[in-house]
């Protein structure tokens, strides 16, 4: 015999799924594509800004006297490394203040472009 509680539960379990409106999937896909485009534009802008910061001082600098390179570390790599470290610090700060994806993704993209790798944020 069914108790009233079981009867109620049976009714609730039997409730059918409600189909979302057909346009909803397209609406979500469109919103994601728009966000992705914004992210990519932001990443390109950040990469350009970082590149400017890295290249302009180097162009303005006097030509350095010929000195032997530190073993295995050409000068350009050291500059790149400094930029990567600056980006790492920016990322660290962003994570500490729970920054949004929109802020963080361009930093990852800029870091990846400096290292010549495809962008792939940590954790994915």
């Amino acid at each position: 015999m069914n108790t009233p509680g079981q009867g109620l539960r049976k009714h609730l379990v039997a409730l059918p799924q409600v189909a979302p409106p057909p346009s909803l999937g397209e609406r979500i896909g469109r919103a994601h594509r728009t966000r992705l485009r914004r992210l990519r534009a932001g990443a390109v802008a950040t990469a350009l800004a970082v590149a400017c910061v890295a290249i302009v001082p180097a162009l303005q600098r006097e030509p350095a006297p010929a000195t032997p390179e530190v073993a295995g570390t050409p000068a350009i790599d050291r500059e790149k490394l400094a930029d990567v470290r600056a980006l790492d610090r920016a990322l660290q700060t962003a994570y500490e203040r729970n920054a949004s994806d929109d802020e963080i993704a361009p930093l990852w993209a800029a870091r990846a472009s400096l290292l010549g790798r495809p962008a792939s944020p940590a954790g994915i």
Binding site: L24, R27, I28, D101, A105
Partner: peptide, 15 residues
């Protein structure tokens, strides 16, 4: 609908 959109967009976020 809004909640469904919010949920799927959250799924598509990187973090």
């Amino acid at each position: 609908e809004d909640i469904t959109q919010e949920t799927f967009l959250r799924m598509l976020q990187f973090l």
